[in-house]
Design a protein around this nucleic acid. Structure first.
Lengths: 122, 122
DNA sequence: CTGGATCCCTTGCGATACTG
DNA sequence: CAGTATCGCAAGGGATCCAG
C-alpha cells in the first residue's frame, strides 16, 4: 500500500494549528526580520504580549520545529531563538499576507485597521 | 498628515482574524475548487462541520467581503456562495500552505497527520 | 534574565433540536 | 433547502505573583 497525499482540507487544518495562535505569526516574523533573537528582545518587540504567552508560544513553535532554542548555561541566563529551515519556509507566506492587508487598507483609508494605530505605531 | 503603512505585526493580526478560524480556510478553498457552491453542497464537502458553524463562518466571511452570498427568492430556497475578488487573492496563499504541509509529510511518512486519514479520505 | 505557577474569564466550538 | 435556537464544554488567553 502506498501513501496518498493528504487532502487539501487536511493540510489547511494542519497548517493553521501550527501558525494559528494569536502570536505565532508575529513571533516568527519578528525573529525573521531581527535575526537571532533573545527572550527579552522578543518581549519588547511583540507589543502587549505577557511572559506567559511568550513562553508558551515559543515552546509550541519549538515542538513543531519551526524555531530552534539554544540555551547558554551561564549566569545570567541567555537563550537564543532562531528560525528552523521549515520555519523559514513560512516567511514568504507571512509576507504575502502582509501585502494582502496593505493592499486592502490602501484602497480604503478609513479602514478599521487604523483604529488601532496607537497600538501599532502608525 | 499622511497615512503610514500598517506595521507587519498589525497586518499579521488582522489577516489571521480574517482567515484564522477552524473552517475558514477549508470553506474558501472548497468554493475555489468546486466553483459556485450551495449551502448543502458545502456541508457535504466540509467533513464534520455542523450547520451552526457553517452558517456562522459563512456570515463572517461575507462580512469581511471574502465571499459573496446570492439568494434566490424561490421555493425551495437556493443560496449560492462565490469568492469575491479579495477572497480569490487568498487562494494562492492557501495553496502555498498546502505545499508546505505536503513537503513536511512526504519527508516523514510516519507523520501524525496520517493518524487522521479516516477523516480526510486517504 | 528567562521564565514557571495559579486563577479566572472570554471565546470558539460541538451537540441537539427545531423552522419558513 | 438553508438555515435558527439553545445549551454547555474546553481551549485560549489575560493578570498577577513567584523563582533559579
Amino acid at each position: 500500500m502506498t501513501l496518498n497525499k493528504p487532502t487539501p482540507d487536511c493540510c489547511v487544518d494542519f497548517a493553521f494549528q501550527r501558525i494559528g495562535g494569536k502570536y505565532k505569526g508575529r513571533i516568527m516574523y519578528s525573529i525573521h526580520t531581527h535575526g537571532v533573537s533573545r527572550y527579552g528582545q522578543l518581549k519588547k518587540l511583540i507589543a502587549g504580549i505577557t511572559p506567559k504567552m511568550l513562553t508558551q508560544t515559543l515552546r509550541e513553535l519549538e515542538n513543531d520545529k519551526l524555531i530552534h532554542r539554544k540555551v547558554y548555561t551561564e549566569v545570567p541566563p541567555k537563550v537564543e531563538y532562531t528560525l528552523t529551515e521549515s520555519g523559514q519556509k513560512l516567511i514568504p507566506f507571512i509576507e504575502y499576507l502582509k501585502e494582502w492587508v496593505e493592499e486592502l487598507v490602501s484602497s480604503n483609508p478609513d479602514h478599521e485597521l487604523y483604529k488601532h494605530h496607537e497600538l501599532y505605531g502608525r
